[in-house]
C-alpha cells in the first residue's frame, strides 16, 4: 500500500458524447480521458460549445457517455441500480449556472434541507448538516429569508450550501459564476477555495473566465470536445497562442506579462499575480 498515492475521485476513460440535433449529429465530447484526484482544485476552461458542460454532467451521471466509462470512487456511472446512482450523485454534488433555477423552496433553510430530506437523513443530523452547510458559505444568518431578495452571489452560495448538505466529496460547478457580477464571483471563489482547503472537498469549476484558475492547482482546457491543455495554470498563461486558439483570453496581468516578454524583456510570461509581476518589472530597471 502506497500512502502517498492520491486517491482517485473521478476517472473518465475515453468518453464521448454526441447529441442528435435535427438528424445531424453533434459530437460534444470526443474521446476525453481525464482523472481527478481527491483534494484537487481543477478549473475546466472552454468557450461556449466546447463541450465543457456536457463533460461536467457526465461526472455525476446526469449524462452517461455513449462511449467510454466514468468511474466515481469505484462506481461506474453506467450502473443502473438506484443505490449506485444516488450514491454517485450524493458524492459528486453539482451546482448549476442560474441559481434561480435550482432552488426548490421559498425559505433558504428548507432549500438546503431538500437534499438530505431526499436521502432520508434523520432529523437531528439534518439540522446539523443544514447549519454546517450554511455556515460554510457564510449564509447561516439568512436561513429564514426568502431567496428572492438575495444578490446573485448570495443565491449561488445558497445553491452551494444546498449541495454541501448532502456531504459530497466533490463539488462540480457548471458555469456557476457566469451570471454573477464581479463581487458575486469573488464571493463564490472565496467560498470554493476555503471548502477545498479546509474541508478537503475536491472542486471542479467549469468556467470561461480564465482569471478564475489563477489560484487553482490544475487547469484543463477543452476545445471542440477535446482536451487541448491539461496542466498548471502558469504554463497555460505562458502560451498565449494556445489560449487564443481555444477562443479564450489571457487575464489582464498575464496579458501584460506576455506583452513584456514578447518585447524581449526578462519577465515570466505565465505570471498571473499582480504583486509578482510588479516585483519582476521593478527588477528590470
Amino acid at each position: 500500500m502506497c500512502y502517498n498515492m492520491p486517491m482517485q475521485a473521478i476517472s473518465m476513460q475515453n468518453v464521448s458524447y454526441r447529441y442528435a440535433v435535427d438528424d445531424a449529429d453533434l459530437l460534444a465530447v470526443d474521446r476525453v480521458s481525464l482523472s481527478i484526484e481527491e483534494g484537487e482544485f481543477v478549473v475546466l476552461l472552454g468557450t461556449n460549445g466546447s463541450g465543457k458542460s456536457t463533460l461536467a454532467k457526465m461526472m455525476n451521471g446526469l449524462l452517461v457517455p455513449q462511449e467510454g466509462q466514468v468511474v466515481v470512487y469505484g462506481d461506474a456511472t453506467s450502473d443502473e441500480t438506484d443505490e449506485v446512482i444516488f450514491r454517485i450523485r450524493a458524492t459528486v454534488g453539482m451546482v448549476f449556472q442560474n441559481p434561480d433555477n435550482q432552488m426548490v423552496a421559498s425559505i433558504i433553510e428548507d432549500d438546503v434541507a431538500f437534499g438530505p430530506e431526499n436521502l432520508g437523513i434523520a432529523h437531528d443530523e439534518m439540522v446539523e448538516r443544514v447549519r454546517w452547510a450554511l455556515e460554510s458559505v457564510g449564509m447561516y444568518e439568512y436561513r429564514s429569508h426568502t431567496p428572492t431578495k438575495l444578490s446573485g452571489g448570495q443565491k449561488q452560495r445558497v445553491a452551494i450550501a444546498s449541495v454541501l448538505a448532502m456531504r459530497p466529496k466533490v463539488l462540480v460547478l457548471d458555469e456557476s459564476t457566469a451570471m454573477l457580477d464581479p463581487v458575486g464571483r469573488a464571493e463564490v471563489m472565496r467560498v470554493l477555495h476555503r471548502l477545498n482547503r479546509e474541508a478537503g472537498i475536491t472542486v471542479v469549476l467549469i468556467t470561461h473566465h480564465m482569471d478564475e484558475c489563477t489560484e487553482a492547482s490544475r487547469a484543463v482546457v477543452l476545445n471542440r470536445g477535446r482536451v487541448a491543455y491539461d496542466g498548471k495554470p502558469h504554463d497555460l498563461f505562458a502560451d498565449e497562442a494556445l489560449v487564443a486558439s481555444c477562443g479564450l483570453e489571457l487575464p489582464p496581468v498575464a496579458k501584460i506579462a506576455t506583452l513584456l516578454g514578447d518585447m524581449g524583456l526578462k519577465v515570466d510570461k505565465g505570471t498571473s499575480d499582480l504583486d509578482a509581476l510588479y516585483e519582476q518589472i521593478c527588477r528590470l530597471k
Binding site: N118, M126, M166
Partner: peptide, 13 residues
C-alpha cells in the same frame, strides 16, 4: 442532482 426520489423513506426538515 440533489437525489430527488432517492430514498423511499424521505425525512422532513
Amino acid at each position: 442532482a440533489r437525489c430527488y426520489n432517492a430514498s423511499p423513506k424521505r425525512t422532513r426538515y
